[in-house]
Amino acid sequence: MTSVVRKGATSRARLRRRVLAFTATGAAALFVLLTVSLTTGEMSIPATTALRALVGLGDPGDVLVVQQFRAPRSVAAIVAGAGLGAAGCVLQRLFRNPLASPDVMGVTGGASLGAVALIAAGASQTLIPLGALGGGLLAALLLGVFAWRSGLAVTRLVLTGLAVQAGLAAAVNLMIVRFPAELAGSALQWTTGSVYGRTWPEVWGAAGAMVLALTAALVLHRRLAVLDLGDDSAGALGLNTSTARLQLMVIAVVLASLAAALAGPVTFVALAVPHIVRFVTGPPTAASLALASLTGAVLLLASDLVVQHLLPIEGLPVGAVTATLGAPWLLVLMFRQSSPVQRSHA
């Protein structure tokens, strides 16, 4: 017997410690970032005062600034980031592709088109998130209709997703070119992603739906794990692969569309977060799905703070920051994975 025990076994205890440490760090970071976001701004407020104001105590002026201006924006960033992180995690596993993300599926394009169309129609600011939500879901429906042919095969899904995305992006592009200059600016602003100017009703609505979708994703995680085994093995284990893939895709699309409704199509969070999480916690589990949400929330909130306070330029989209921050990480992590040792088994 060649039971040569190779190197590389990660002991379970060590892995669990790493997951716990990562979770604790993430939660602490989220708390610190949230506090910073509530305290800083044109009028700086001490941390304790800000936290009291958040629950409605203290000086009415502070309460107004914190509750009405700062908190919705921060919570929107957290909710959207959580959705994007989880959506990216589910999609990359469903598509068995490290580059899968809402952009690849047309969700981003659909959300952009929905929002830009409403901007063009002169709809009020409050309707635009709904337009984005509808656009994202519509794009996913389009993808499903084109890609479904007695089941959902992965390759066909990826290619069709690219096609849907390209077509929708062209439509957005057309509108931006045809618009008068001021409208083109606000449309472009929207399509790069920003959490500026969110209000409580929007944030609460999206947050509630997001919690439901995240719960569904966690409940169905077992199906996702079985799907990872490939269609033949999953089928032999009694899973209806097409149905399961459809359910999970719907969840991922809802997560991504809700995020897009709040923050616009922010790139890179959905793409980079799963890689970061996998790097830290190893093989994907239900816990890593939850961690992806946490990491996404931290990343987006941090990026939004950078946009607001660290950069000298007004009105920069948060998407540009997530891309700049996320890209080097992503490249390093992906190149680590595509090392020859790993790929020879593929």
Binding site: D103, G185, L188, Q189, T191, T192, T267, F268, L271, G315, L316, P317, G319, A320, T322, A323, T324, A327, L330, L331, M334
Partner: peptide, 15 residues
């Protein structure tokens, strides 16, 4: 990845 980064920078400059 490079393409996505450059696109976002392009938008940022235009904005």
């Amino acid at each position: 990845v490079l393409q996505l980064v450059l696109l976002s920078w392009t938008s940022a400059v235009m904005l």
